[in-house]
Write a protein that binds this DNA or RNA. Structure first.
Lengths: 119, 119
DNA sequence: AAGATATATGAATACATATTCATATGTTCA
DNA sequence: TGAACATATGAATATGTATTCATATATCTT
């Protein structure tokens, strides 16, 4: 069984006790994947800007595009990503679509991240 | 001046008052960029796994590679990314390099993110 | 119904990046 | 000094993705 581990990491296990102990406390593979997917959504300047804009106020696509100086199309594509990640919701009023935040954790996540980059 | 805005967003400003008010409260462009860069680091399953492993214990490269079942090379590349983002630090003991967390915010950011994906 | 407007979306392009492979570096030990 | 081992790293490849462009959809107005 050590051999197969060697195949995957190409080195010897130095501390087998630690590895097996840490392994028990790791979250499910599926959750780790989902978490990475969530942060991937935050990992784009355009989407960060959109979310910060929505912290302040509900806005329509056109407002957002103007605010962050991007094309309507680019913003619309990114809003779709945010929507799929359940981070924003929308309501339609005639031909205008208003987007707003749909999650309470975002602000706290951003605040923590902000502390890291500014400290 | 409205014309140039039309050029960039390809639509009319619906609510100019809101846009200008929100604009005032937006963080600096530079900070938004840095924040996106930080979350980009979190937006990868391999790096998420490494960081979760380090929540539990300081580990050497080989331990980490074994634990998450990746090659030593792949792990080493990703540790460099984490190091550049000031998220991990290391100490050398002979030829073995031990990595550990170098930031207090990560755990809280992950906890918040975890709440989002599991709720 | 026709034109104007707000938004959405598919396809193409350009760019970023994760992993692999080969190899380099640095350290220990005999 | 030389072999063995832990880690780092450059280059290549493969894959993902953000923006643009053209166009579709939906709604309002006249």
């Amino acid at each position: 069984m050590l051999e197969e581990k060697r195949d995957s990491c190409e080195c010897n296990v130095i501390h087998e006790d630690i590895v097996s102990k840490v392994k028990k406390n790791m979250p499910k593979e599926e959750h780790l994947y989902d978490l990475a997917e969530l942060f991937k959504v935050f990992g784009d300047t355009t989407r960060i800007k959109i979310l910060y804009a929505l912290f302040a106020s509900e806005m329509c696509v056109c407002d957002i595009a103007t605010l962050i100086n991007m094309t309507q199309s680019a913003v619309s594509h990114q809003l779709r990503v945010l929507k799929q990640a359940r981070l924003v919701k929308y309501r339609k009023e005639g031909k205008v679509v208003y987007y707003s935040l749909d999650d309470d954790h975002i602000k706290q996540i951003f605040d923590q991240g902000y502390m890291h980059i500014t400290e």
